[in-house]
Amino acid sequence: MRAGFPDFRLGNVLATSFTGTLSERQGDPVERIPTPQRLIDWLAVYGLAVDSCTPAQLDRARELREAIHAAATAAAIQDPLPAAAVHVINDCSAQGRAAAVLTPEGERRWRLSSASRVEDALGVIAADAISIIAGERDGKLALCASPTCQAAFFDTSQSRTRKWCDMNTCGNRQKKARFNANRSKNPRPAR
């Protein structure tokens, strides 16, 4: 990772991990892809390596990110999907030229067009969002219980009762806050 930028919050689900490139949405937002190079870095982590990225492509990626977040949030609370978000997701999906390929190890990977365009990578992310929001995958969309985060995440736990988008960040922060609040209510007697 390049110094000077916040770490990526990596997850197992491409589309919701992409929405995590803007975290703490209800507090002091943290932008994790502030530059075109940083988007290139994030895409490479997810096996979607691109050759270059322009500021306009970064803007389009952020527009897709926010559309996925809006649609996933609506789906999680069982509200109608925002038409503008659906349009952006569908448009990005249709503009991408990527193919699913099978590795010798039996895993699916994505092969972008020969030009390795950002639009192809965004198409893969949009297609992943469509499969999640449409309910085609085993899991459930939920919202993080952290009052400063409230990120949409895809819960694949057996009970489908996860509360946090990421236990290592939001979950630990909330548990630590609860522990400290309980300690201040019930201080230990001095010896």
Rank of each mutant, 00 (worst) to 15 (best):
P6V: 05
V13K: 10
V13N: 15
T19N: 03
G20N: 15
E24T: 03
Q26I: 02
V30L: 08
E31K: 04
P34M: 04
L39K: 11
L39G: 07
D41K: 12
W42I: 04
V45I: 12
V45M: 11
G47S: 06
A56P: 00
I68P: 08
I68T: 02
H69K: 03
A71P: 10
A75R: 15
I77N: 03
D79A: 15
P80Q: 11
L81M: 12
P82E: 04
A84T: 15
A85R: 00
V88M: 02
D91Y: 00
D91R: 14
Q95N: 11
G96Y: 04
G96C: 00
R97K: 06
A100E: 00
T103F: 11
P104H: 11
G106Y: 01
E107I: 12
R111V: 05
R111W: 01
L112Q: 05
S113Q: 01
S114G: 14
S116A: 14
R117I: 03
I125K: 07
A127T: 04
I133Y: 10
I133T: 09
A134L: 14
E136F: 03
L143M: 09
L143Q: 07
T148K: 10
C149N: 10
Q150H: 14
A151Y: 08
A152Y: 09
F153V: 01
D155Q: 13
K163G: 12
C165N: 11
D166R: 09
M167K: 04
N168F: 02
C170N: 05
K175C: 01
A177T: 14
F179Y: 13
N182G: 10
R183A: 13
P187F: 01
